[in-house]
Structure formats: C-alpha cells, structure tokens
Design a binder for these strands. Sequence first.
DNA 1: GTCTATATTGTGATAGAC
DNA 2: GTCTATCACAATATAGAC
Lengths: 209, 209
Amino acid sequence: MKKIKTRDRILQTSLALFNSVGEPNVTTLLISDEMDISPGNLYYHFKSKGDIVEELFDQYELDMLDLLTVPEDADISLDQQGFFLHLLFETVARYRFLYQDLVNVLSRYDQLRVRFKRIQKKKTSAFRAICESFRRQGTLIIDQEELDSLCEQLTLTACYWSAFDTLSHLDDRESVDPGRGVYHMMHLVIPYLAPADREEARLMSRDYL
Amino acid sequence: MKKIKTRDRILQTSLALFNSVGEPNVTTLLISDEMDISPGNLYYHFKSKGDIVEELFDQYELDMLDLLTVPEDADISLDQQGFFLHLLFETVARYRFLYQDLVNVLSRYDQLRVRFKRIQKKKTSAFRAICESFRRQGTLIIDQEELDSLCEQLTLTACYWSAFDTLSHLDDRESVDPGRGVYHMMHLVIPYLAPADREEARLMSRDYL
DNA sequence: GTCTATATTGTGATAGAC
DNA sequence: GTCTATCACAATATAGAC
C-alpha cells in the first residue's frame, strides 16, 4: 500500500473543501484541521493559500486543454458529441469551486484571469468545431448569426450550469449531477438539427437525466 | 435642493461599490471612506454589514417581484416580451453584485437563500406564462419537454448572463450592457417560433445589440 | 448624528524546536 | 517533515466624547 504524500493530500483535501463549502470560506486552518496536521506543516508545503489554489488551477487547466483539443476537420457523430459533453461536465464538476465563485476567485488571483479566459475561448472554439462538423454533414441547419449565438450560449451554460444547479441544493454541496447539464446542452442544439436527426438526439439526451 | 439622508447614501454607495468590486471585497471601512464619514457613523445607521446587504436585497426583491407579476392569460406580443426582458435585465444589472458572487453571498447570508430561490421560481413561471401565451397564439411551436427545458435555460441565462459578461471585461466592472443579454434570451426562443414570426423576432433582437 | 478611539476576532503567515 | 507558538494585520463592531 502506497502512502500518499502530505503535499498531495493537501491538494486533495483543499479541493474537496473548496468544492463543498466554497473557496472563500475555506481557511488554511480548516484544511490542516481536516487533515489532522498542523498549520505550520501546511505552510511548509505551500507558501500561501493562493499557491494551493493556483496549483489546483494548473491541474484544471491541463485537464481542460487536453479535453478541448477537438480535431478541426473530422466528422463528429452525435454520440461523440454526447461523450465529449459528458467529459466536459465531469471536469467542470471536479473543479466546481472555481465556477461557483468565479468572479470572486478571478478577482483575487488575477494571474488566473487571463488563463481562464483562454480556456473559455477554447471552449467556444470546440463547440464551433463540433457544430461546423455537424453542418458539413447536413446534421445541423443553422446560419452564421445563429451559430455565433448558439456557441456563446453553449459556453455560458457549460460555465454556469454547475453553479446554477447548486443553487437548487445549497444545503448539501457534495452531490453533483453532471448529467442534467449535458441534457441541457443537447437541448440547446436540438432545435437546429435536421428533422431526421432530431428524434435520435432527443432520445439520447434523456439518457443523461 | 434636497439633502440625501446619510442612511440612504450608505445604501447607495454600498450598492455602487458592491457592483464594481464585488461584495466580498468591500469592507465597511471602504464604504465609510468613500463617503467621507467615519466607520462609527456607518455603524450608527446599520448594525452590521450584513444588514446593508439585506436591505439592498429587500429593494431587489421588491423590484423583482413587482416586475415578475405577469398576467396568466393575456395575449403577449413579441414586442411586449422584448420590453419585459429589457426591464428584467436592467433590474439584474442594478443588483448585479448579487449575481456575480451568488453562491458565496447566499452561503453567508442564509436568510436570503430561500427568498432568492422563490424569486428564481417566479422567473421561471413568468417565462412559462409568456411562452404559453405565445403557444396559444400560434407564435410558438413547442412540445412540453422542450418547453420545460427552454424555461429553465431562460432562467439560467437571465441569472448568469451578467456574471458571464463581466468575465469578458473584469478590468472595468462599471460598464454593463443589458442589451446583449436580451439578445441572447431572444435567440433561445427564436428557433421555436413559427416561421412567419421568426424573421420579425430576429430583426427585433438586433436592436438590442 | 457624527466623530475618535479601541476592543475583538479570525486569518494568513513565520520562527524555531523536535 | 512536522509541531507549537506566535506575529501581523485587516475587518467587524462597540464605547463614549462632542
């Protein structure tokens, strides 16, 4: 049995606490308390609370950029899109503390601002790539203005679904349900699908409920 | 010339500061400083910072509930819907500090949670009333599942557009643009409109850009 | 109503022994 | 690497004079 290094346990515990009670409400004392180590020990591994946040953001950024590398000219199926959305929402859920206090967190750690914006842009691009693939295949019937609006809407929903969802059960912030997010994302796209594909997509979307 | 009472100036200044730098970043000292009064004076009028937040929330709640009283069975026109959305986004923009740190604020002032949820529900109901009016008039062609999804999506967008928009210009949080929000809301509805009404709605939506 | 202290507390962070 | 002790500081809030 491998022993998890304290440094990694700090990251792990912090992430869990951030997600469940919100990053601004988590003190370094709470983290060390939860782990049964001393505050001093925590500061031996990280020179500040901000450093913990930043390192978690590094992980998030890696996961996201990796996920968002969508091939520009491949033919993407509805199935593949569903799978992609599923992974996307899972990643968002893992780091949901970021999204739940997004404006706040980014206003305090301004090195993260530009990096987050870059990820947002990549998200929009990924959605656009998928939609354009659908359009090329005749699955999606949409003009330019609608496409722009749709992609921005998808980005907004991908960003804020998790926060919107926790509003409904602010009492226990542990439970998350990425599925309903995927369902909503699909229903943004469905009205623009060719009639032939619409029913299939609707059936598929229900699997995520 | 009428002199504004200190108590009201505190509310006014707090709201402005909350909106521009975020409620969690605003201290009672910053408020009193900005107004050129002493911290003690501030605490003569409000026994805590939370009381200021709550009183601002009272105003917000009044404004919102008033706005959301949508007649259940009247025939609503596209124009009227546009006007409604415009007012809605203006109100959200006035109290945008609430939305920008929503999870955080509601987690610290838990008396506000249930009240906010109630307002959210009323919003969804209002959207549903409008959509159902459209449907009765033959303007909107949509089945039940799609309608549910659409109304929830409208609620999400109404809630988070302002926060999503400030992400783009986190540098100056003063400027707000409710127009683009209205535009997006309309584009959520447009795909479900009867073909005859779609073009009119698209033209109308562009006025809000 | 308004001011000038000042008390209080919580949090981030460091020093130095083990 | 880990602990105990402690500092420094900022923010909320109060007391009492004017």
